[in-house]
């Protein structure tokens, strides 16, 4: 029987306790954040332990299917073939697009097998959607300098991720102009599936998400201008 030397036991328990703090740090930080505040004690713990927990890949919130099961996130990849003509336009770097674009979706349940490979692409689509930042924000939002700086940083990261994925897909799918769109598949209610017989992969459940949001200041200004003359007595 192999026994642990007594002196070593205390040392190992101390190390183990620190390790457990590393395991607890990230979920405690994750769950102690709200929209208005961050718990300073758990934030301090997480900051102290983060080098350890990040490198050992212990920095998880463990929120499987939580707080709620969410909609499916996908990426539609369109490849528009480019036909290079011999004429002047080609020599100037312009290209003529001819054929209809070929489309593929990530993840692809039919073609990505085994299931683990499909799941990797499913996670990638979730990640791509989670990194989304709109291509522009309203002039009103730009006045908040902190928000604007955060948005600018997020948008640069999203743009870089998009460029990386487009380059990879172009390499894989051949020449052509690759465009990516974000898709969201809504979760149907039991009534829709069981009574209306809507299949889970019904195209009506699939929405293309916008890459930028309409600018409310731009939209509202003309409406106000139109109202003002009407309000005035003739």
């Amino acid at each position: 029987m192999r026994n642990c030397p007594k002196k070593m036991q205390a040392f190992l328990l101390a190390i183990g306790s620190l390790h457990m703090l590393g395991v607890l740090a990230e979920p405690l930080r994750f769950f102690s954040r709200s929209e208005v505040a961050v718990a300073p004690d758990f934030e301090l713990l997480a900051e102290t332990m983060q080098t350890y927990s990040q490198w050992l890949y212990l920095d998880h919130g463990y929120f499987f299917f939580a707080p709620n099961p969410g909609p499916g996130r996908l990426i539609r990849c369109s490849v528009q073939p480019e036909l290079e003509s011999e004429d002047l336009s080609s020599s100037q770097g312009l290209q003529i697009q001819a054929e209809a674009p070929a489309e593929t979706t990530l993840p692809d349940k039919l073609n990505q097998r085994p299931r683990l490979l499909y799941h990797r692409y499913l996670m990638l689509a979730e990640f791509y959607n989670s990194r989304f930042a709109p291509s522009h924000i309203s002039a009103e939002s730009m006045k908040d300098t902190e928000f604007a700086a955060r948005w600018a940083q997020d948008w640069v990261m999203y743009d870089r991720l998009q460029a990386s994925m487009m380059k990879s897909l172009k390499h894989k799918l051949g020449t052509g102009r690759v465009t990516l769109s974000r898709l969201e598949r809504s979760l149907p209610t039991p009534y829709m599936v069981l009574h209306e017989k809507v299949p889970l992969n019904d195209p009506r459940l699939l929405d293309v998400l916008p890459e930028s949001f309409p600018d409310p200041t731009v939209q509202e200004l003309p409406a106000e201008k139109l109202k003002e003359p009407d309000a005035k007595p003739q």
Binding site: F64, F65, A66, P67, P69, P71, G72, L187, V193, L205
Partner: peptide, 21 residues
């Protein structure tokens, strides 16, 4: 984490997990 979601309280989370294509 699940206790923070209303679907895990109203009993619909199992359905919506099953309905995720």
């Amino acid at each position: 984490g699940k206790m923070r979601g209303d679907m895990w309280w109203d009993g619909s989370a199992m359905w919506y997990s099953a309905a995720a294509y």
